[in-house]
Amino acid sequence: MNHAEKIADATREIFSSMIMLDVTAKEATKRTSPDFVNSITGMVGLAGTSKGNLLIHLPAPVATAVTTVFLGMDVDSIDDDVCDAVGELANMLAGTVKAALDPGGGDIKLSMPSTVYGDAYCLDCQDCGISVLVPFDLDGAEFSVELQLVDG
């Protein structure tokens, strides 16, 4: 299974089982721009025999809609609840992708999640090795999940 398939499977599984939302994976690509507008990114580091980052990038309206369903509470702008929900999503996605990358479970561990948000921010990776970004459709809106991986 290639990395794009692992990301697509993990994302579909997390969204359908934890948030009860169906998402459709689009064709995998590489991120073409470091710039994000009115968005939030959740990221988790992967460390061990392979190292990297798992990131989920959501436009603000998608993040608030997903959080509303995920937490069962109305949110209309990015606040602490949205940050916690997006960080937790990144953590669950990283855990599922890690299980596919490291079936034995002892080689890769996850860092603490972190979220970045704002009207405009630039996200760059130095020496990020393999970089795969899978866009997803969620009821006509789009978000993406990205894996950066350097084999140790």
Binding site: G45, D80, K109, M112, S114, Y121, L123, D124, C125
Partner: peptide, 23 residues
Amino acid sequence: GLHLAIPTTISGNSYKLSAPSGS
């Protein structure tokens, strides 16, 4: 024991960073 992931940089005039509640 600790292991390192890989560094990321964030830049811009209006970004904020957040860690999980309770950390």
